[in-house]
Write a protein that binds this DNA or RNA. Structure first.
Length: 868
RNA sequence: GCGGUCGUGGCGGAAUGGUAGACGCGCAAGCUUGAGGUGCUUGUGGGGGAAACCCUGUGGAGGUUCGAGUCCUCUCGACCGCACCA
């Protein structure tokens, strides 16, 4: 920060440096934002929640935006008479803590708790209306013990399964990798070739709720449409048929799932996934097949294969019988484009009506028989070339299905399969069960003991929590829990014999799938959720966070809430009644001549928009405006902004820039402008008369200002209410402009009172955004009062003052603006039309014309339709 | 490929079918100031005009309407999500 910048904010009239801590202290000492677990105040409840932060070390501008948005809602709702719960906590388990341990030798717990302490201090400087008594971190045994209990309850209720699944295995790191962590077939950290491996893991049975998770999306009317659509796509319902194909030789059969049973007569091959059990069987006696399968598995997740979409296959030599055509058989291929995870891992190929099947058939010279005739096509010469026909039509070349349209043919085919006992209509889901096992240390231990005699045994409730051991090392790859000398060696809770603890920990998404409910009863050590408190507060009325969690976190939370309901921990099914997804905070990026990224503090902007390096004077390339990131160095430290301008300025700018759901750009000039505004409205509050009874009469300027004040009350209220926060800011600027106009007006009786009223309204209307400044101005205006704005009811507009003395009505001729007239509100139509016709410019346009129609919209517009 | 969102001044953006560009940023001129990255005043979509005013203008083309940024159809572009899902 340059000297010049520091000077610019030195000695301001409103000294945020002393005011902000003072008011934070005042709110805190009066417990303004504390609520009881089960309140008895009779107020309507409102639960405001922002997605809790990962304790990475410092807060960033995304946090500032997120928590400012939430704080506006919380403070506004409180003023509107709600009992508001607004808690904060820490999503504290996760990989970065382990990486810090590996790279810097600091214990994950120490690293995490130090980061939390630092970030808590930073958050407190923002002046958020939080109930800090409810704070917790998910890495505390006091939290995760309850999570372990929930898991065991889910297990008892049949909502948890242990099953084999295919995973990306990094043989060097000795761990499972998420798909995103596999880059070109290699582990992102180790660079080792990733293997596909079957591993026994714990799964939450989220698919049991798939129908409900989908249909209930319709009830979430305060969620963004696109989030609901993304979830619907993710859950992925599809209607089709499951049917059995018998092998031509032997007794084996293969199950297939299809959405197009109407095209069965167009079959020319069957394809099975490389992981399909039948493929294994073939490979056992066919080395070439084994080699092909191995190749597919190594390339399975490689982006190259997926992007080029090259279809590879291997003909097993086996053949299957057609379900309807006696004697017809088709080859069985192993194909890389068939997914074991979807449907049954096997498909029947109908190249004429499925693009992938067609690509495959063309490559390997398999037959292409059209069986759906497009409308207006000629059955004698309709043929499929490079594009499969997937549109509507009528079945032909299809035996008993001939002449039926697609839908009727599907039903007829399913009926026929069912009659033969070889198939049925089914609904299929894209959603997979949620694998939660991670081979990591810094996570919640899964409370299970593996016994050779008893199998997987639940840890008894009385022994919870299963605590993470502190004495672990990170000098070797793999899971430190697995190689800990003693931790995993325990006796079986069931038979007492020597057994092994589960050394996997939970996916951190589990931690965040129920934290919102835990806030309601955070101090109750005896149980995960205390029903009285949770039933009172849940669901969250307004949840706010980034769009990046549109699917996983929100879907998992919806699942968890249903599972908690089924196990008696909660009454609701949907955790978040309202959801708001904020945009990102972007900033320009800067590059020096030698190509190195530069921090905004390292450059100096020239008036012409170019930039130079502050120290060297070398030219700097001003790059794209993009998401703040450490690698591009285009970050702005909220701590520095708050130190320089104060929290209110940071909050105000972030709200004013643009609509909160869109990406915003952080600019120096914008922040400076917001700072100037804080000073300006404080100035408006100086030198006002003391409080007094309202005068009986107001002059013209006073009346104008009072109308502006009450219009602002109505407009700002509506804007805060509707998440149009940038509009609320604009309306407050208008009010400030109106106050400035009144300051300049000739003094008249009552004007001082009207200015006081306006300034106090200004302070209170802006208090959700700039709470410290609001308190400071209120105290300045009311030196004898000990009341806090944070405790005051929201201002109400006087309806009489919302009606203007006169309204300006636009006058159009043939829809074109030709003038405007001032008339009394709700003046009679004939009067308004006469005045409109008399307006000089309008009269000129009407001269010599015949008016065929006069349209009058009261208080809005007059439009003359003329002929000739 | 499938699904979706969005196109308004130099920029961020306002606008229940009813005066397009509120409000802010930036810019320009002026006043204030020892100075100013302060404060204040005025101006600021494009074209014409001395002015009054006129024409034009919300990605493009049609349509509905007395009246369209807003509703409908087509089209172009940008962005986002999912993606070999059978």
């Amino acid at each position: 920060m340059s000297d010049a910048t520091t000077q610019a904010v030195e000695g301001p009239r409103y000294d945020f440096r002393s005011a902000e801590p003072k008011w934070q202290q005042a709110w805190d000492s009066r417990g303004c934002f504390h609520v009881d677990d089960v309140p008895t105040d009779g107020k309507p409840k409102y639960f405001v929640l922002e997605m809790f932060p990962y304790p990475s070390g410092k807060i960033h501008m995304g946090h500032v935006r997120n928590y400012t948005l939430g704080d506006v809602v919380a403070r506004y709702k409180r003023a509107r008479g709600h009992s508001v719960m607004h808690p904060m906590g820490w999503d504290a388990f996760g990989l970065p803590a382990e990486n810090a341990a590996r790279e810097r030798g600091v214990h994950p717990a120490k690293w995490t708790y130090e980061n939390i302490a630092n970030m808590r201090t930073e958050l407190k400087r923002m002046g958020l209306s939080l109930d800090w008594a409810r704070e917790f971190a998910t890495c505390q045994p006091e939290y995760y013990r309850h999570q372990q209990k929930l898991f065991l309850d889910f297990l008892k209720a049949g909502l948890v399964e242990r099953k084999e699944s295919w995973v990306n295995w990094d043989p060097i790191d000795g761990t499972v990798l998420a798909n995103e962590q596999v880059i070109d077939g290699r582990g992102w950290r180790s660079g080792a070739l990733v293997e596909k491996k079957q591993l026994s893991q714990w799964f939450f049975s989220i698919t049991k709720f798939a129908p409900d998770l989908l249909s209930a999306l319709d009830t979430l009317d305060r969620w963004p449409e696109r989030v609901r659509l993304m979830q619907a796509n993710w859950i992925g319902r599809s209607e089709g048929a499951r049917l059995r194909f018998d092998l031509a030789a032997g007794n084996d059969s293969v199950e297939v799932y299809t959405t197009r049973p109407d095209t069965l007569y167009g079959m020319s091959f069957m394809a099975i996934a490389p992981e399909h059990p039948l493929a294994d069987k073939v490979a056992a006696s066919d080395p070439k097949a084994a080699a092909f399968i191995a190749e597919c598995k190594s390339k399975g997740t490689s982006e190259v294969t997926i992007e080029t979409g090259e279809k590879l296959g291997y003909d097993t030599g086996l053949r299957v019988k057609h379900p309807f055509i006696p004697g017809a058989t088709y080859p069985v291929w192993i194909a890389n484009f068939v997914l074991m995870e979807y449907g049954t891992g096997a498909i029947f190929g109908c190249p004429a009506h499925d693009q992938r099947d067609l690509d495959f058939a063309r490559k390997y010279n398999l037959g292409v028989t059209p069986v759906v005739l497009p409308p207006d096509a000629d059955p004698a010469n309709f043929a499929v070339g490079k594009e499969a026909y997937t549109g509507p039509g009528v079945a032909y070349n299809s035996g008993f299905l001939d002449g039926l349209d697609v839908d009727a043919a599907k039903r007829a085919a399913i009926d026929a399969l069912a009659a033969k006992g070889i198939g049925e209509g089914v609904t299929n889901w894209r959603l997979r069960d949620w694998g939660v096992s991670r081979q990591r240390y810094w996570g919640c231990p899964i409370p299970i003991v593996h016994c050779d005699a008893c199998g997987a045994v639940a840890v008894p409730d009385a022994e919870l929590p299963v605590r993470l051991p502190d004495d672990v090392t990170f000098d070797l790859p793999g899971n430190p829990l697995d190689r800990h000398p003693t931790w995993k060696h325990v006796n079986c809770p069931s038979c007492g014999k020597a057994a092994r603890r589960e050394t996997d920990t939970f996916d951190t998404f589990v931690d965040s799938s129920w934290y919102f409910a835990r806030y309601c009863c955070a101090s109750d050590a005896s149980q995960p959720l205390a029903r009285a408190a949770v039933d009172h507060w849940m669901p969250v009325d307004q949840y706010i966070g980034g769009i990046e969690h549109a699917i996983l976190h929100l879907l998992y939370s919806r699942f968890f809430t249903r599972a908690m309901k089924e196990t008696g921990h909660i009454a609701v099914e949907e955790p978040f009644a309202g959801l708001f997804t904020q945009g990102m905070v972007n900033h320009e990026s800067y590059k020096s001549a030698d190509g190195a990224w530069l921090y905004p503090e390292e450059i100096e902007k020239r008036p012409d928009g170019t930039a130079v390096h502050r120290e060297t004077g070398q030219p700097v390339t001003v790059g794209r405006i993009e998401a703040m990131s450490k690698s591009k160095r285009n970050t702005i430290d909220p701590g520095a902004i708050i130190a320089r301008y104060g929290a209110d300025t940071a909050r105000w700018f972030i709200l004013s820039d643009n609509p909160p759901e869109r990406d915003m750009e952080w600019t120096e000039s914008g922040a400076a402008g917001a700072f100037r505004f804080t000073q300006r409205i404080y100035r408006l509050a100086e030198n006002l008369p003391a409080a007094s009874a309202p005068p009986a009469e107001f002059g013209a300027a006073g009346r104008t200002l009072r109308r502006a004040t009450h219009k602002a009350i109505a407009a700002v209220t509506e804007a805060w209410e509707g998440f149009a926060f940038n509009v609320a800011v604009a309306r407050l600027y208008e009010l400030a402009n109106a106050i400035t106009d009144a300051e300049r007006a000739k003094d008249e009786p009552g004007l001082g009172w009207a200015r006081r009223e306006a300034v106090e309204a200004m302070a209170r209307l802006s208090s959700p955004a700039m709470p410290h400044l609001a308190e400071e101005i209120f105290a300045l205006l009311n030196p004898a009062s000990t009341a806090l704005v944070a405790d005051l009811a929201w201002p109400e507009a006087e309806p009489a003052l919302l009606v203007a003395d006169s309204v300006t009505i636009a006058v159009q001729v043939m829809g074109k603006l030709r003038g405007s007239i001032d008339v009394a509100p709700n003046a009679p139509a004939d009067h308004v039309i006469a005045a409109a016709e008399a307006e000089p410019n309008v009269a000129r346009s009407l001269e010599g014309k015949r008016i065929v129609k006069r349209i009058h919209v009261p208080n809005r517009i007059v439009n003359f339709v003329i002929a000739g």
